[in-house]
């Protein structure tokens, strides 16, 4: 009997998501800094993540930013060539750097 009641309750409960149509994640315009190399950043980074992901890392060394670019190439398989990797690193260090090489 107890089992019966349990099953009834389960059938009565919703099997649908609260949102029945497609959900839409809003687009957010982050206050990214403009400057030399920005085009390369836009072309190589934005495919996978927002600018928010960049500006919320905190101010970091050149080595840190180069390491992040390398991680995207090595682990996340982003097709970034060495020339672009350098330009992106310079941009990140100039605008979101801590003035330390290491």
């Amino acid at each position: 009997m107890k089992k019966m009641i349990l099953i009834t309750v389960l059938l009565a409960s919703s099997l649908f998501a609260q949102v029945k149509e497609n959900i839409e994640v809003p687009y957010v315009a982050f206050p990214i800094k403009m400057g030399k190399g920005f085009d390369a950043v836009q072309a190589n980074c934005l495919m996978c993540h927002s600018f928010g992901y960049i500006i919320n890392q905190g101010r970091q060394s050149r080595q840190f930013w180069r390491g992040k670019v390398d991680k995207m190439i090595k682990h996340f398989k982003a097709p970034i060539d060495e020339k672009s990797a350098k330009i992106v690193t310079d941009y990140l260090f100039e605008h979101y750097g801590n003035n330390k090489e290491k």
Partner: peptide, 12 residues
């Protein structure tokens, strides 16, 4: 979606 405004770091 389905959230109140929260502290936001990234949309994607």
């Amino acid at each position: 979606p389905e959230k109140r405004p929260l502290i936001m770091y990234s949309d994607r």
